[in-house]
Design a protein around this nucleic acid. Structure first.
Length: 305
DNA sequence: AACCGACTCAACCGCCTGCCT
DNA sequence: TAGGCAGGCGGTTGAGTCGGT
């Protein structure tokens, strides 16, 4: 049983690419293209690599106009906004960031940006809420977080405004619209078909039928434990009474944002804070929920230091 | 200088989907 | 219509690097 491998794994080289291999692959593709067949490409150019490996090397490293590292605040902003909205669909997010690869963005999110957000949210959570919690079991933490959530809608709105309101950032209007249009439109223009059903499988299935050129993996998304991966599915709770596209867009984003934020808090409440960047902060490891905390107010997404 | 843990990121793995026959 | 194949994708891994002790 099991799936047949795409190539003879014993006959191909694995691991880091040499400069010679890079040169051969790059030069061939620049002259001849991929020939629409990655699997046979290694044979054609005489390197002992899996076709998929060639494809990845080209897409993530060799192709022209790629940027590596040094993500700007604007790029952070786009990544966060889209992640909140559509979850870990890295290829779609990458398509909004010229020169960036899905792999780069995924790595950046997992290693830095998520921690950055968690850290900020955690600090704000600690400093600015006035709901006094007794630290309970792990299972009760979520309901405590939910309590906090229910009582702080206004505060959520403040944070939401920071994310979606261009006037609060240096982000240009046209770039804002770049975020909103291509990705979100399907959800607005087909409201009767997409994500209006609380049955998540049906919603996901509907998404597949109508948007198969986007990411194919909403089903796997919904079973993932990653932060925010169910965000899009939350739309069903918010859009039913909104016919105006702008309202739907905002409510959709808001729903995703709230879900994202809830999961951030959940991580903060349940995880070892050492893991998420609270080193040296004022947050105690074991009893931080016992502190007086005021309402969750304005808190910048970025360090501009 | 040596050790060690944390971090980064290139690369791999395996699943899903669409296309072709 | 079913099955096989290749492309595309997201999750994960592990070697290399960095920074602290």
């Amino acid at each position: 049983m099991g799936r047949a491998p795409c190539c003879d794994k014993t006959a191909v080289k694995k691991g880091p690419w040499s400069t010679e291999e890079d040169a051969v692959l790059k030069s061939y593709i620049e002259k001849h293209g991929t020939g629409n067949n990655w699997i046979s490409l290694p044979q054609r150019i005489g390197i002992k690599r899996c076709g998929k490996s060639c494809r990845l090397r080209w897409l993530n490293y060799l192709r022209p106009n790629l940027k590596h590292g040094g993500f700007t605040d604007e790029e952070d902003y786009i990544i966060c906004s889209l992640y909140i909205t559509i979850g870990s669909r890295w290829s779609i997010i990458a398509s909004q960031l010229p020169g960036r690869t899905d792999n780069d963005i995924k790595n950046y999110w997992n290693t830095r940006l998520k921690k950055k957000l968690l850290s900020k949210q955690g600090k704000a959570f600690h400093q600015q809420l006035n709901v006094k919690f007794e630290r309970g079991t792990t299972s009760s933490s979520s309901s405590q977080i939910q309590m906090f959530h229910d009582e702080n809608t206004k505060s959520n709105q403040t944070l939401y405004n920071q994310v979606v309101d261009p006037s609060t950032t240096s982000f240009a209007m046209e770039e804002q619209s770049m975020i909103k249009n291509p990705i979100l439109e399907p959800f607005y223009w087909e409201p009767n078909n997409v994500l209006f059903d609380n049955d998540h499988d049906a919603a996901a299935s509907s998404y597949h039928h109508h948007h198969h050129h986007s990411s194919p993996s909403l089903n796997s998304m919904s079973s993932s434990s990653s932060i925010g991966t169910n965000s899009s599915l939350q739309m069903s709770h918010y859009t039913s009474n909104h016919n105006d596209h702008g309202d739907q867009q905002d409510m959709f984003f808001m729903a995703g944002f709230e879900n994202f934020q809830a999961e951030l808090f959940d991580e903060i409440a349940n995880n070892n804070t050492e893991e998420i960047g609270f080193h040296g902060t004022e947050m105690p490891n074991n009893n931080y929920l016992d502190h007086d905390i005021s309402s969750f107010i304005d808190y910048p997404l970025y360090d501009n230091e």
